[in-house]
Design a protein around this nucleic acid. Structure first.
Length: 588
RNA sequence: GCAUCUGUAGCUCAGGGGAUAGAGCAGCGGUUUCCGGUACCGCGUGUCGGGGGUUCGAAUCCCUCCAGAUGCGCCA
């Protein structure tokens, strides 16, 4: 389906040309004065200079021609030179009927689908997810769904951190505690046990303990470094232990991400990139990209136009070990080889911007990626507490994700049961669904790149620009539709008719904005545009709902038409929240 | 020190060349023959951080200053 704005634009271009002006002036936008009109064109003012003619006269010429189009009900030229347009009701209704019949709700899928990889989540093995991981998961998941809905082939990869010193630290601590385990017996030749020697909660406690010890005790750190090297060299027992750490940890991570409605297509790990490193280093040396400087192997990535100092990309440390950068580069080789992506999007904290600048430049310079492979880094801001400082627990510690979710769910449960008597089990279930919406909407409604304040009271509120408000609107529509069906109505029979009131027309106009919103959200990688759209849509619906008695309407055709409008509104809202990564309950 | 980002109502945030800068929250006041009132309607609030410039037109683009956040070779 052709977007409605395109159709209107074409009319305007034609009108400008017919009036003897350059057609490119006929650019139409949504009105920013809804009290005056629905669409506006400012081209006449831009044309004034070129044609040495008063803008209002030009606007008048164009308006006179547009007036005759069947698309519009009214077109007026207003000082100093605005062209204001109102849509014809028949045209609008026809458009919505097409939208209603379209399974994609008027969104045209990409004609040339791209393969897009999204690297998000930022999880590390053996470390519990904390609030720092929340944004990457939430935003990444939404970006993934939006791109997919726009018609692209999208592969989400968790890109698990499973290789650095953290592994050596854990192994060292396990060895301290259980030195008799077979994994540490160098002469052991048999099969290793299938059962892990620790549980997930033990594992989560082991890492911080080990990390703390290594900071205070140089000998301990030395031991951890040695364990890391042994693991990377492929010592059997260490590899087996590492595999246990992975298994236990991944099982837990899948559960936690599942609770967040976050699903990865790939569970690749940093270790998967390691095999590529030796050849990559050799290649970079041989081609003259990489050279030794101060004992480390580096690739220069400075550019003439830089306004800031861009340090060289470090490939190997003085001790010959690989780094974060090295792994990311090697991962690119893996991705290019196995998935041939047209585009790779990385979602991390914006503080890593420099790192990605270096990696991207290095990858291009050394030709690890093809020239037309797009590499993007989306850096998001920090999630802060009400005091404007990074979100912490009351005692100032790192807030684990599970605790945060529990807090929200408890708050939600309280609100749901406050004024209603509901079955407790159902209320708990509903609280989970609404709570997740509260968290995700609260996060996604802000621009990703900015820091934002996580305010539990605000996010869980049923009033204002919140997830629960959106869900409430959907649930309300569901309830009406259900009643209609119980009374013998058939949803599929309804056809959207002409707008009978101003609020109905507003709602219809709002529905036509669905497709452009999706395109914009995809192109700008901006889920918050979808949030602000559904907030507007929910408002328009509630306004319409409030002044329209639907089920008690006597005229059957009118009633069916409104039901059809409600059904379309529901479909749009539900599609949008799905793109944001949450869903609506049946009741709340 | 250098660089990047941010600065919009009391608070939290939209808007990123066009008309009178918008929402929500908080405050006050209304709307119940009710399909879910956790709704809807109304009222008040601004040196768009300061100053200069470009433009017919600037919250929006450019310069500069101020404030905050962040980054700047062997962490990830």
């Amino acid at each position: 389906m052709e977007p409605i704005l395109n159709l209107i634009n074409k009319e305007a271009v034609r009108a400008f040309e017919a009036a003897g002006y350059d057609g490119s002036l006929g650019k139409v936008t949504l009105s920013n004065r809804p009290d005056l009109c629905e669409y506006q064109c400012n081209g006449a003012m831009a044309a004034a200079k070129k044609y040495k003619k008063a803008p209002i006269l030009i606007a008048g010429d164009v308006a006179a021609i547009l007036e005759k189009s069947e698309v519009f009900q009214e077109v007026t030229a207003v000082n100093p030179g605005f062209i204001n347009m109102k849509l014809n009701r028949e045209f609008l209704t026809g458009y919505l009927q097409d939208m209603q019949a379209d399974e994609n709700l008027s969104v045209e899928k990409a004609k040339e689908p791209k393969t897009i990889m999204i690297d998000y989540g930022g999880a590390n093995v053996a470390k519990p997810l904390h609030v720092g991981h929340l944004r990457s998961a939430i935003i990444g998941e939404s970006v993934k769904r939006i791109a997919r809905y726009a018609g692209h082939k999208v592969i989400g990869d968790v890109h698990l951190g499973d290789w650095g010193l953290q592994m050596g630290l854990i192994i060292t601590e396990v060895k301290k505690r259980q030195p008799d385990l077979v994994y540490f017996d160098e002469n052991y030749q048999g099969e290793y046990p299938t059962e892990a020697p620790f549980t997930i909660s033990e594992l989560e406690e082991i890492y911080p303990t080990a990390s703390g010890k290594s900071k205070e005790d140089p000998a301990y750190k030395e031991e951890a470094l040695e364990a890391t090297a042994k693991l990377q060299d492929g010592v059997r027992g260490y590899r087996a232990l590492w595999q246990h750490i992975l298994n236990v940890s991944i099982t837990d991570l899948k559960k936690n991400y599942g609770n967040l409605n976050v699903e990865f297509d790939l569970w690749k790990k940093e270790s998967d990139a390691q095999p590529y490193i030796p050849d990559m280093v050799e290649y970079m040396k041989k081609e003259g990209y990489a050279y030794m400087d101060q004992g480390a192997l580096i690739v220069d990535v400075k550019e003439e136009t830089d306004t800031k100092e861009v340090p060289p990309c470090m490939i190997l440390k003085t001790d010959g070990a690989a780094l974060y950068t090295t792994t990311d580069l090697a991962t690119l080789i893996d991705r290019m080889k196995n998935y041939h992506p047209d585009e790779i999007i990385y979602l991390t904290d914006k503080r890593q911007e420099m790192h990605f600048t270096q990696v991207f430049r290095c990858a291009r310079k050394t030709k690890l990626v093809e020239e037309n492979t797009v590499l993007k880094h989306i850096g998001f801001g920090t999630m802060n507490g009400k005091d404007g400082k990074p979100f912490k627990t009351r005692t100032g510690g790192v807030m684990r994700l599970e605790w945060l979710i529990d807090d929200i769910n408890a708050e939600m449960f309280k609100k749901i049961t406050e004024n209603h008597s509901v079955d407790e089990a159902e209320a708990r279930e509903t609280a989970k669904i609404v709570g997740l919406a509260a968290i995700k909407y609260g996060d996604l409604s802000n621009q990703a790149s900015k820091d934002y304040i996580f305010d539990v009271d605000k996010f869980t509120s049923f009033e204002g620009n919140t997830g629960p408000y959106i869900l409430y609107t959907i649930v309300r529509i569901k309830s009406i539709l259900a009643k209609y069906q119980v009374a013998g109505g058939v949803l599929q029979n309804g056809r959207i008719g002409l707008a009978a009131s101003a609020s109905e027309k507003s709602l219809m106009l709002e529905l036509t904005r669905f497709a452009p919103t999706i395109y914009q959200a995809y192109e700008e990688i901006a889920p918050h545009k979808i949030c602000s759209y559904i907030y507007d849509l929910a408002n328009e619906f509630n306004r319409f709902y409030h002044e329209t008695k639907i089920l008690s309407e006597e005229n059957e055709e009118q009633r069916a038409s409104w039901i059809a409008l409600l059904d379309l509104t529901k479909r749009v809202l539900e599609t949008c929240i799905d793109l944001l990564g949450f869903e609506a309950p049946e009741r709340m």
